[in-house]
């Protein structure tokens, strides 16, 4: 008794269909991400902010460090935002075009965030994966170092360093690089502990692959999902961090500027009614941070296997 031939073929067709529909982990994540409306909108916003930082300079009628001396002291009526004068966002208290400066500040803030996240991804992931893979005493020692570094209030140490070695963007990056990787190292280590007991790692060990190669070729790629999520969430934190230092006047130095420095300048003049000097930088700051957080959350929902 053979089953109905048509039914068998139908089942086979269905299986073939199912095979076609089979999705990879990444495709799956992509679908989940794009179903998240807040994340998609944030991604678009982020694209717009990045475009503003990259190409806004072409729209600006003035250079960011060009001082219009005739405007100093008459900011209240000549420096207001207007299309006609070409100062779309008005001028700052030194008679410089705020649009051009906001473009520059957004760019520098984004760069700081991305560099910080990159350092975190590279150093933190490798450090955490190494500690987790070797385990035992090596792990204990390496993670103890992270614990010790984490319990130091780094902002103070960084300010100490900025004072001693002079304020420069290089020192700022160095300082951000020094702290940003700590969290990532912990996360990467935790994930590595579960990955290293999987069969494919066992096979690699059994076939005599060197530990460094196992870490780089077998463990790190599997960490990628969670690393991307936390890197995205790290970017806004780094931007906040840099803005904090620049707000104190210790970060990016004139004539360069960042959103934190612009907010600081704006907050000094808002009592005289120059609201545009704080609102435009603040708007870009808030939008950027918001967007990064939402994209990060969306990525976490899409990629983090724990939350499924």
């Amino acid at each position: 008794m053979l089953p109905n031939r048509a039914a068998v073929e139908g089942a086979a067709d269905q299986m073939a269909l199912a095979e076609v529909k089979g999705r990879s982990l990444w495709a799956d994540a992509r679908i989940r991400f794009f179903r998240n409306r807040a994340a998609v909108i944030s991604l678009i916003m982020l694209g717009l902010v990045a475009a503003f930082a990259l190409f806004g300079g072409m729209l600006a009628q003035y250079e960011p460090d060009f001082v219009n001396f005739s405007l100093i002291g008459s900011n209240a009526y000549l420096g207001v935002p207007s299309i006609e004068t070409g100062h779309y966002f008005g001028t700052d208290s030194n008679g410089r075009d705020l649009f051009a400066r906001t473009v520059m500040g957004t760019g520098i803030s984004l760069m700081v965030g991305v560099v910080g996240a990159l350092v975190a991804v590279i150093v933190g992931t490798l450090y955490g994966a190494t500690a987790g893979y070797y385990g035992g005493r090596v792990d204990g020692a390496m993670m103890r170092i992270v614990d010790v570094l984490m319990s130091i209030p780094f902002m103070f140490v960084l300010i100490l360093m900025l004072v001693i070695f002079g304020r420069s963007i290089f020192m700022l990056f160095l300082g951000i690089g020094l702290i940003s990787w700590l969290d990532m190292a912990r996360i990467a280590r935790g994930q590595t502990l579960t990955i290293k007991n999987k069969e494919f790692v066992e096979v690699a060990v059994a076939t005599g692959v060197r530990p460094s190669k196992i870490i780089l070729r077998h463990i790190v790629p599997n960490l990628l999902g969670i690393v991307i999520v936390y890197a995205t969430l790290l970017v806004p934190n780094m931007i906040i961090f840099e803005s904090f230092i620049s707000f104190l006047g210790l970060g990016v130095q004139e004539p360069a500027t960042s959103l934190g420095a612009l907010i600081n300048e704006g907050s000094r003049t808002m009592q005289f009614g120059f609201m545009w000097q704080i609102s435009f930088p603040l708007f870009f700051f808030v939008v950027t941070i918001f967007a990064f957080f939402f994209v990060g959350d969306g990525l976490r929902d899409a990629l983090d296997p724990k939350d499924r």
Partner: peptide, 22 residues
């Protein structure tokens, strides 16, 4: 909690000053 996430102290401080003092 989402709104306050993007309002670190150096953003909160000027905003508060603007509203409650000015």
């Amino acid at each position: 909690s989402i709104g306050a996430q993007v309002l670190p102290n150096f953003v909160m401080a000027p905003i508060l000053l603007l509203i409650f003092t000015l």
